[in-house]
Nucleic acid binder design. Structure first.
Lengths: 248, 248
DNA sequence: AAGTGGTCTAGACCACGTA
DNA sequence: ACGTGGTCTAGACCACTTG
C-alpha cells in the first residue's frame, strides 16, 4: 500500500491515524455512543493496512476515547454507558456497598472568572462563566458540596431546568449532560487534593460543625486535546466515605 | 508453529506468555534492572511467533513491569531508575518546583499486626510486623509523617542501620531498598484518602497546632500477582503541598 | 451467511546502541 | 556489522453478533 497521507509524515503511521480519528471525534463526525467505521473501512479510507488502523484504535481504546464490542464494531465512548459512572467519582463508603449519589442543586447562575478559575480554564479573567452549586447525597445524607464553573460560551442557552431534568430523568451525570446537549466529551481530569476545615458556607450544607476536617478537591476536566472545559471545587465529609486512588 | 504449551490453553497465547514472563519475574529468574531475553529468543523458547511475544511484552510494559530500550533490549523495571521516583509520590508544591524529599527516620521496631493491618496485608492477626516511622521533609520542613508496617517474614535481618544507609547513600526510596535487598518489587498500590485533625502525636511532628487539618492516606503496596507487601498510613500537612491525581 | 473485532503468524524494513 | 526493539504489511483463522 502507499504511504502518502494528507499530513506530512514525520510521525509513525499509526500515530497519524490516531490524530485523524481524534480529529473526527473532536469535530463531531462521530458522536458519543455512535459507532465509527470498521477497521477495514478506515484502512481503505486512510490507505494503510488494517493492522495499522488496529494499533491506532488500540491506543484510543486505552485512552478511553473508544470502546470495542466484538462482533458489533467500535464505538465512541460515552458517560451514559454503564460501568463508566465511577470513572470520575472516586468516593467509596467505609462500610457497605457502593451506592450511586443523588444530586441536589442549590444554585445556578452566571458570573465572571476570577484569576484562579481563568488560569485553570485557560480563558480571560473576567470572562463569563456558568456557576453551579450542588450537594451529592448518599443514602439521603450530604457528603459532597460542589462549586462548579464552566466557560459560558460552551453552554449557550443552558438553564437550571435543563440540568434538573437531565439529572433526574436519566440518572445522568453532569458529564453526560455536556455530551448529549453540547457534544462536549470529558475524557480526562486533574485533581489537587488538600485538607481544610469546614467554614460557615460548607459546614451547614454538609451538616457538620464549623472546624470539622474536610477534603478539598480542585478538579479541572478536559475534552479532546487536553482542552479544559470545567473547573470545580469539591468539599467532602470523609466521616463515612473515602477517596480512593490506584497507583500503577 | 505449534500451539502446545506447558500450561493448558484456554487463554489467548499472548496471555499465557504474559503469565510465563510474570512467573519469571516473581521467581527472580530476572532481577530488577536486568535485561530479559530478546523477543526472538523468547519466541523460540515458548514456541510462538515474535509478534505474540511482542504483544505480551507490550502489555507488561503498560503495567510497568518491564521497560523497553530501543537497540538495547527489554529490562525489568526498577525503582532506582530516574523518572520513576514520583510514580508513588503524588505530592506537589503549591508554589515552585517539585523537589525530592528527605527521609528522617524516627522509629524502627517490631510489633504484631492489629486487625486492620492484618486484613490489608493478608496475614494472621498478631503475626510479626516490622514497624517504621519517619518524616518526609521538603526544604527542611516536615510535610509527611509515615507509619509503615510490613510482614516481618519478608524482611528477615533488616536493621535500622541498613535503612538509613540505603536511603542516604543512593538517595534511595524504601521501595528501592525492598528490591535491592530482598528482591521484592512493588508494582502497584491502593490509597484511601480522608481528612482528619492533627492529634497529640502528629501535630508536634509536623509542626502544626493540634486540630489543624491533615490528609490521612492509607496505602497498601503490592508486588506481582497483587500480593500485599506493605501497609502505611501517611499524615500530610497540605498547607504548602497538595496530593494530585490524574483521571483518565 | 456475512460482517465485525480478536488472535496469530511471517516477513520486510527502519532506528537505535554497541562494538 | 550486528543485534535490539519499532513499524508496517498481508493473510489466515477464530469468536461474537446480527439478520
Amino acid at each position: 500500500m502507499k504511504k502518502e497521507l494528507v499530513t506530512p509524515s514525520f510521525l509513525p503511521l499509526y500515530e497519524q491515524i490516531k490524530l485523524l480519528i481524534t480529529r473526527g471525534l473532536a469535530d463531531g463526525e462521530w458522536h458519543p455512543g455512535e459507532s465509527i467505521p470498521s477497521e477495514m473501512e478506515l484502512a481503505r479510507r486512510y490507505q494503510v493496512s488494517q493492522g495499522t488502523v488496529r494499533k491506532a484504535i488500540d491506543e484510543l481504546v486505552m485512552e478511553n476515547y473508544l470502546v470495542r464490542r466484538q462482533g458489533k464494531g467500535t464505538f465512541v465512548a460515552t458517560h451514559t454507558d454503564d460501568g463508566t459512572v465511577y470513572r470520575f467519582l472516586h468516593l467509596m463508603p467505609l462500610e457497605g456497598e457502593r451506592e450511586y449519589p443523588h444530586s441536589k442543586f442549590i444554585g445556578f447562575g452566571r458570573g465572571k472568572a476570577d484569576a484562579q478559575v481563568a488560569k485553570r480554564l485557560d480563558v480571560r479573567p473576567g470572562s463569563g462563566v456558568v456557576v453551579l452549586r450542588r450537594l451529592l447525597e448518599f443514602s439521603g445524607k450530604p457528603v459532597v458540596y460542589d462549586d462548579i464553573r464552566l466557560p459560558a460560551a460552551l453552554l449557550k442557552g443552558i438553564t437550571s431546568a435543563m440540568i434538573e431534568d437531565h439529572v433526574n430523568a436519566h440518572k445522568g451525570t453532569l458529564y453526560s449532560l455536556y455530551e448529549t446537549h453540547y457534544f462536549i466529551r470529558i475524557v480526562s481530569a486533574q485533581e489537587r487534593i488538600r485538607a481544610a476545615l469546614a467554614d460557615e458556607t460548607s459546614a451547614p450544607l454538609l451538616n457538620v460543625a464549623a472546624g470539622a476536617p474536610l477534603l478539598c478537591i480542585e478538579r479541572v476536566a478536559f475534552t479532546y486535546n487536553k482542552q479544559p472545559v470545567e473547573w470545580r471545587m469539591s468539599y467532602v465529609n470523609t466521616d463515612n466515605y473515602y477517596y480512593f486512588d490506584e497507583l500503577n
